[in-house]
Design a protein around this nucleic acid. Structure first.
Length: 460
RNA sequence: GGUGGGUUGGCCGAGAGGCGAGGCAACGGACUGCAAAUCCGUGAACACGGGUUCAAAUCCCGUACCCACCUCCA
């Protein structure tokens, strides 16, 4: 069996994945800042890394998977003030919406999902270490801010491939207290204009953590000083991941062995921004296609390729998925093996497009066997195994809810009655009456097809 | 100004020196009362201009256009 190779953003090459601890894989993925409803761009990251996680598990590794939630930051404070409600209420509401979006797309829950606000002591400890080591300093202007000293860490810029001198100044704090304009905030002193609830005690005064320090602290707490993979969207590469790397290594931790970054979903040729409106919010998109079809759409592109989102392409993906689903409905479901081609594709930096090509080839072979009167058990088993690795098994209980299956039962009873009438008309060769029933059902959104086992119906 | 990615058939989307990924759509055939589904088959692509090579979508140089990051962002 081939070995897993992954593209590492730090060294910019595809490398063999060798876990620090044999048989285990530790992953930290930057989750979201919960400040608005999640759109399809946001969840791509979660779906991509969910596929990674499932593949590692399928490869026999025990996976420790941590994905954080940033529930305190500038934007949350600004937005909640605009909306006239407590910042923690906005953050909580949005984190519940996010959770719902993840669940609807069959993204497995992480091992743990730490909140930034729950780990202030760990951050304070880490900042203190950095101050002691001479890599951070308390701003001399009595603001209570603490900055990372970029000049004290020569490797700064290694992750994003930039030289410090080419960089623009960080603008997340008043530059008056900084040694160097590129220094970034580890701790932001409390301001009178901000709610007292958004501040915590620290040796250098009340305040709140900077954005970057939280991931360093939480990754360290749950995965240790050294872990295997750190993931997130490409936009996080700089400054967020660069800063995490600098802080963590400057404090003597080895930090991530491999950095993985997923590409964007764009719309109208541009990055999907949070100000685009509601049409691409996950909850809206899954009114048009089923969640499993949206997930298929995301998995069909390589995680490092930009995807130009369009509803047309989404509909195509849905049609493609239904072909697979249709095969499984006709074949007898079984358990089976992963084809070697599929394994090789997944091992090659999670080559999901090539993996899906193998899946479709298997579906064709299976359909062919069915057409020849065979049961296609082997193919069906393989297809189920592949789908399950990708989180796309249509029989996964994650896709259905009790109320939906109840509705389905009621509908089935009604449709069956109509189909009996149609069967009677067909037996009498009254094609007009038979087609009338089928047309009426179609108008209601129910497709009927005749099979050797009798008529079958499905929602179109 | 600095950094990274991209441009593939009607559409989506892989590949990364020689064997036409796969899907969607289209067309022809088989099957069907007719459809649908399925099977068989068909066509068609590598932004542009040079170069290297026996051989280039793939490597090199140049050009154009697009996107992202350098400020909060998946």
């Amino acid at each position: 069996m081939s070995a897993l190779r992954l593209y590492d953003s730090l060294t910019r090459q595809v490398r063999d994945f060798v876990p620090l601890i044999p048989g285990r894989a530790s992953i930290y993925v930057c989750g979201l800042t919960v400040q608005s409803e999640p759109h399809v761009g946001h969840v791509r990251s979660a779906v991509n890394f969910d596929v990674l996680r499932r593949w590692l598990s399928a490869s026999g590794l025990a996976v420790d998977f941590i994905r954080n939630i940033t529930d305190i930051d500038d934007k949350i404070l600004t937005k909640s003030a605009e909306q006239g409600r407590p910042w923690y209420n906005l953050a909580y509401d949005m984190s519940r919406a996010l959770d719902q979006a993840y669940t609807s797309l069959n993204v497995l829950p992480p091992t743990y999902e730490p909140l930034a606000t729950g780990h202030i002591p760990e951050m304070v400890e880490l900042i203190a270490e950095l101050i002691d080591a001479g890599h951070a300093y308390v701003a001399p202007d009595a603001s209570g801010d603490v900055y990372f000293d970029v000049q004290s860490w020569p490797a700064y810029g290694e992750l994003s491939g930039q030289r410090v001198d080419d960089m623009e100044a960080a603008a997340d704090a008043d530059p008056r207290g900084k040694h160097d304009p590129r220094d970034f905030a580890l701790w932001k002193g409390h301001k009178e204009s901000e709610p007292v609830t958004a501040s915590w005690p620290a040796p250098w005064g009340r305040g709140r953590p900077g954005w970057h320090i939280e991931c360093s602290a939480m990754a360290g707490k749950y995965l240790g000083a050294d872990f295997d993979i750190h993931g997130g969207g490409v936009d996080l590469r700089f400054p967020h991941h660069e800063n995490e790397q600098a802080q963590s290594r400057a404090s003597g931790r080895g930090f991530a062995q491999t950095w993985m970054h997923n590409a964007w979903i764009t719309t109208a040729g541009e990055k999907m921004s949070k100000s685009l409106g509601n049409s691409l919010v996950v909850g809206e998109v899954i009114k048009r296609v089923r969640p499993v079809e949206l997930r298929y759409y995301m998995v069909a592109a390589h995680y490092r390729s930009m995807v130009e989102f369009s509803f047309e392409a989404l509909d195509e993906a849905a049609a493609s998925y239904r072909r697979i689903e249709g095969f499984l409905e006709r074949a007898s479901r079984a358990t089976g093996e992963l084809p070697a081609g599929f394994v090789a594709a997944m091992n090659d930096d999670l080559g999901t497009p090539a993996a899906l090509a193998v899946l479709h080839d298997t579906v064709r072979a299976g359909n062919k066997a069915l057409a020849a009167g065979d049961s296609a058990v082997a193919e069906a088993g393989s297809v189920v195994a592949m789908l399950s690795v990708l989180g796309l098994d249509p029989a996964d209980p994650a896709w259905g809810t009790a109320s939906e299956s109840g509705l389905h039962g009621a509908l089935d009873a009604l449709v069956s009655t109509l189909l009996e009438q149609r069967a009677a008309a067909r037996a009498a060769k009254d094609w007009a009456a038979a087609d009338g029933v089928r047309d009426a059902l179609k108008a209601a959104g129910v497709e009927v097809e005749d099979t050797p086992e009798g008529p079958k119906w499905s929602l179109s």
